[in-house]
């Protein structure tokens, strides 16, 4: 089953304006992903830990995410020290482990963890309906926002539909293996899923037209920056300026 991994809770991060969170997360992540210096990354890590602490405190699912991302980085720890030229540290039976490789792998690990914390604490804490509204008021095309909301809405329904198809196949004695029969079966299942979803889409379209849908979801509440949001904005402008300063001002 797909888990809606939205991190709910009621922390100071959750109460921040979603538009602000999206913009800050984007600028902050971009700065971190292009930075090369260790002090910048360490400063970024400190800020990331600070802002993810309230979320982490109220929700323990975040731990699973951190472990997952760090499993992926293992690939770089295996390859980079062995393939990168540089000062050898250890010789492992003919293979040279280079200092530069280990350094690069460490920098990447640090970056990925900072980015994960920023993404999970600032953006994954926005419920999807609020995300759609925030993106709409950030002047993203209406069509894209509507597309996002439809896609989100139907992921769970279609997954259920696919499970049904899988159960039906299993009851008929289908066992996946490496052969053409398996691939044909999966292709037909995917095709059936497509055909059924198109039928659903047409029904949905007609229902929406009947209810006067003109391509925009209207919302009753307006988004306005509160005084606490201005304080957050000030805090993050300082952080971003600090990161930029540490990265680019020559010492």
């Amino acid at each position: 089953m797909i888990e809606d991994s939205f991190l709910d809770g009621n922390s100071i991060i959750h109460n921040m304006d979603p538009r602000l969170r999206i913009i800050i997360a984007f600028i902050f992540s971009f700065l971190i992903s292009i930075s090369q210096q260790l002090p910048t990354l360490l400063l970024g890590l400190t800020v990331a830990i600070l802002i993810s602490f309230p979320v982490y405190w109220s929700n323990h699912r975040i731990q699973k995410k951190i472990i997952f991302v760090n499993k992926f980085i293992l690939l770089f720890w295996i390859f980079l020290p062995l393939t990168m030229d540089g000062q050898p540290i250890v010789l492992l039976g003919g293979l040279i482990v280079s200092k530069e490789g280990i350094w690069l792998a460490a920098i990447l690990t640090l970056k990925m963890n900072v980015l994960l914390l920023v993404l999970t604490s600032l953006v994954v804490t926005i419920p999807i309906s609020l995300l759609g509204k925030a993106l709409q008021s950030l002047k993203l095309p209406d069509k894209l926002v509507v597309l996002l909301l439809f896609t989100y809405r139907y992921i769970f329904i279609l997954e259920q539909e696919f499970r049904t198809l899988q159960v039906a196949a299993k009851l008929r004695g289908f066992e996946p293996a490496t052969n053409l029969h398996t691939y044909r079966t999966y292709a037909h299942m995917t095709g059936m899923l497509l055909v059924r979803s198109i039928t659903k889409a047409k029904q949905l379209q007609q229902a929406m037209v009947c209810r006067g849908f003109t391509g925009r979801f209207h919302s009753l509440s307006d988004m306005a920056l509160k005084s606490v949001d201005w304080m957050w904005l000030g805090f993050f402008i300082c952080c971003i300026a600090g990161l930029g300063g540490v990265e680019w001002i020559p010492r």
Binding site: V146, L147, R153, Y154, E159, P176, T178, T182, Q205
Partner: peptide, 21 residues
């Protein structure tokens, strides 16, 4: 747009299928 949204969801779901190779 509903069609595109549902197709996008459909590919999201199809991407989760593990196929033996």
């Amino acid at each position: 747009i509903a069609e595109a949204g549902i197709l996008s969801a459909c590919f999201f779901v199809a991407g989760l299928i593990q196929i033996p190779i």
